[in-house]
C-alpha cells in the first residue's frame, strides 16, 4: 500500500504538479495566439517574443522595486511589477499594430503577408529584448520558494517520497484561473467582448451591424499583450527568463492553439494542458515509479524514459501533425481552412 502511495506521490511531484503549472502557462500563451487568430486571422509568430518583451519590463521593474526595498513579503515582487510590465507591453504592441499591421488590414492582404510581417516584428522585439537585458538567463524570483517542502511532506506523512509545491506553481495556477475567468466574463458578458466574438464569427455581418473594427482590433491586441505578459512572467518565475527559450515556446503554444482549434478560447486552454501533460509524461523517466509498483526488489535497467528531454519539442510537433492529419479543425472545432 505504501508503495502505491509512494508511486502516486512521486508521479504527482514530477509529472502532475509541473504539468499543471506548465499547462497553465501554455494555455495563457495559446489564448493570446488564438484571440489574434480569431480576430485578425493570422498566426502571430511574434507572440513568443511578445511574452519575452513584457516579461523583460516586469523584470526591470522588479529590480527597481527591489533596489528601493519594496517587496511583497512571501510573494514574489514580480507580482507588483506585473501591471507596469503589462502597460509597457500593451504600448509597444499597439505601436506595432499602428505601424505594421494596420497597413495590411487596409489593403486586405493575404494572411501569409501578415505572418511574414509578424516575423519581422518578432525580429525587432527579439533584438530589443537582447539589446536591453541581454541574451542570458535572468532570475527574478524572490520571496518564499515553497508552499510545501519535500522534507516537511515526508515528515508529515511518513512516506519515503516527498512532494513539493513551489510558490511559483501555486501562483501560476491561481493567476491562470483568475485570468481565464476574467477573460471569459469579458468575452461573454461585456458589450466589447460580444462584439469581438461577433467579429470573429462573421466579419462582414459584424461590420454591417455597426461594430467598430478598429476598436475590436485594439482590444484584441491589448488582451493578447496582457495574456502574453502574464504567461511570460509566470513562466519566468517558475523556470527562468531567457529570450531564446521564449522564442522556442512558440511551437508548443501554436500546437496548443491548433490542437484546441484555432480561434477557440476553450480549445486553447484544453490544448495547453494536452501539450504540457504529453510533453512531461513522455519525457519523464519512469524507472523509480515502476520500481514502486512492480514486484518487490525489482528495478528496471534503463531509465524507462519514452523520449529524451532534449526532444521535448518533438512531442508538441508530433501532436500537432497528428491533429492536422486526423482533425484539422482541432478538438473544439475552430477555423480550419
Amino acid at each position: 500500500m505504501t508503495d502505491i502511495l509512494n508511486a502516486f506521490i512521486l508521479l504527482s511531484n514530477f509529472v502532475l504538479i509541473p504539468a499543471i503549472a506548465y499547462g497553465s502557462q501554455l494555455a495563457l500563451g495559446a489564448l493570446g495566439i488564438t484571440l489574434i487568430y480569431g480576430i485578425l486571422r493570422f498566426s502571430n509568430f511574434a507572440h513568443g517574443d511578445t511574452m519575452a518583451f513584457g516579461t523583460m519590463f516586469v523584470i526591470l521593474f522588479t529590480w527597481w522595486f527591489q533596489s528601493m526595498g519594496i517587496n511583497l513579503g512571501p510573494l514574489p515582487t514580480a507580482l507588483l511589477a506585473l501591471p507596469f510590465g503589462i502597460a509597457c507591453c500593451i504600448g509597444f504592441v499597439l505601436i506595432t499594430d499602428r505601424t505594421v499591421y494596420k497597413f495590411y488590414r487596409k489593403q486586405k492582404a493575404a494572411p501569409v503577408i501578415y505572418v511574414i510581417a509578424s516575423v519581422g516584428v518578432m525580429f525587432v522585439m527579439n533584438g530589443l529584448v537582447r539589446f536591453v537585458i541581454g541574451p542570458n538567463d535572468q532570475r527574478f524570483a524572490d520571496g518564499e520558494r515553497f508552499i510545501i517542502k519535500a522534507r516537511e511532506f515526508k515528515q508529515m506523512t511518513g512516506l519515503s517520497e516527498g512532494m513539493s509545491i513551489k510558490v511559483s506553481q501555486g501562483l501560476t495556477l491561481v493567476t491562470a484561473v483568475l485570468v481565464v475567468i476574467a477573460l471569459f466574463w469579458f468575452l461573454n458578458k461585456t458589450r466589447t467582448g460580444k462584439s469581438m466574438r461577433a467579429y470573429s464569427d462573421n466579419e462582414d455581418l459584424a461590420l454591417l451591424s455597426g461594430i467598430d473594427p478598429d476598436k475590436v482590433v485594439r482590444v484584441t491586441w491589448i488582451l493578447a499583450a496582457v495574456l502574453a505578459t502574464i504567461a511570460g512572467t509566470l513562466y519566468g518565475l517558475d523556470k527562468s527568463f531567457k529570450p531564446f527559450t521564449y522564442f522556442q515556446l512558440l511551437l508548443p503554444m501554436f500546437a496548443a492553439a491548433i490542437v484546441g482549434g484555432l480561434g477557440s478560447p476553450v480549445g486553447a486552454i484544453a490544448g495547453g494542458f494536452v501539450i504540457a501533460f504529453s510533453e512531461i509524461m513522455i519525457t519523464y523517466p519512469y524507472k523509480k515509479f515502476i520500481a514502486y509498483i512492480g514486484p518487490d526488489g525489482w528495478t528496471p535497467n534503463g531509465l524507462m524514459q519514452l523520449l529524451a528531454t532534449d526532444y521535448k519539442f518533438a512531442v508538441s510537433f508530433i501532436i500537432l501533425l497528428v491533429v492536422l492529419l486526423f482533425k484539422p479543425t482541432g478538438l473544439f472545432a475552430g477555423k480550419s481552412v
Binding site: 491548433i258 519539442f313 518533438a314 500537432l320 477555423k335 481552412v337
Partner: peptide, 28 residues
C-alpha cells in the same frame, strides 16, 4: 504531404517545428 492543402499558416508552423527537431537530432 501533411500540411499542404490546409491553411497556409499550418505549413509555416510545421516547418518551424521540423527544423527545430532536425537540429535537435543533430545535436543529440
Amino acid at each position: 504531404k501533411i500540411t499542404l492543402g490546409l491553411r497556409s499558416d499550418y505549413l509555416a508552423i510545421a516547418t518551424l517545428g521540423i527544423s527545430e527537431i532536425i537540429v535537435a537530432v543533430l545535436k543529440h
